[in-house]
Amino acid sequence: MTHLGVVLLGVSLITFGLMHLAPGDPAEIMLRANGVQPAREAVEALRHSLGLDAPLHIQYLNWLGRVLRLDLGVSLATGEPVAQELRSRLPATARLALCSILVAAALALPLGTASALRPGSLLDRLGRLVSLASVSMPAYWLGLLLLFYGAVRLKWFPAAGMDGPASAALPAITLGFGMAGVYIRLIRAGMLDVLGRPYIRAARARGLRAGSVIVRHALRNALLPSATLLGLQIGGLLGGAAIVETLFAWPGIGKFAVDAIYAKDYVAIQGYVLLTALIVAAVNLGVDLLYRLLDPRIKKI
């Protein structure tokens, strides 16, 4: 737990430091947002009102104090509070993430299990092929191909935006397909391992049906590493979402961040980076707690 505290402290320091990477002074950048060189007095006045003339550590503490009150500053592009902008877009990203995890699971569960049941079979080779394609395929290219076939040619799905369940299909497939590869391999390896264990043979010997042994005894245990990987991958998922959301005009936080980068909206970028880091930390903490529930041998987090 102390470790988590240290990491969060480091996260806050880096996020705070990001603003100071930008060439020039934040006050000047804010005033220059509309492209006009600001007057010296105006910059000085804003510097003072923002507390930028204070020593760096005081600035950091002030900033941290605001962040802890959920005040992430005001977007330079829209003039709205960044926290509010992010909160209104978070559900869309969460929906996309959930749908992509479902797509990944729909691919990885059957393929991973089938590959492990018959190693070397046609299905095993298919699983290997899909997982190779999944890790090698650029998500943005897959997205373009899906756009072309799914939206332009067949007109089955809307090309952009978020209305109705059909609109989530293309972005979720794009993102989910890219995730599926590692899980196919992980589930296959886990199943191969579990299937050789004595308790599986014992369950079969007790006369339980093969299907129920595979699903209830083997798959359940083989899935544990996947839960860990999902925790580790959540950052990659958020990063991928930025690209996919932009491609499909999905109104989530990823598209918001890319738009903020175009608009040089440093305050919004900072808020987004902080939010994603907190999501990653929270999800990993959740996975740890889940493990403690599932495996009583683990006492301490």
């Binding site: 480091g10 880096i14 958020l238 990063g239 930025a242 040089k264 987004y272 980076v273």
Partner: peptide, 24 residues
């Protein structure tokens, strides 16, 4: 390891994106 853990707490692509955006 603490420094590494802090950096890994950020989604890599997003932090790289943000650093590049800040640098110009």
């Amino acid at each position: 390891m603490t420094v590494i853990d802090v950096l890994l707490a950020f989604p890599g692509l997003i932090l790289a994106l943000a650093v590049a955006a800040m640098l110009g």
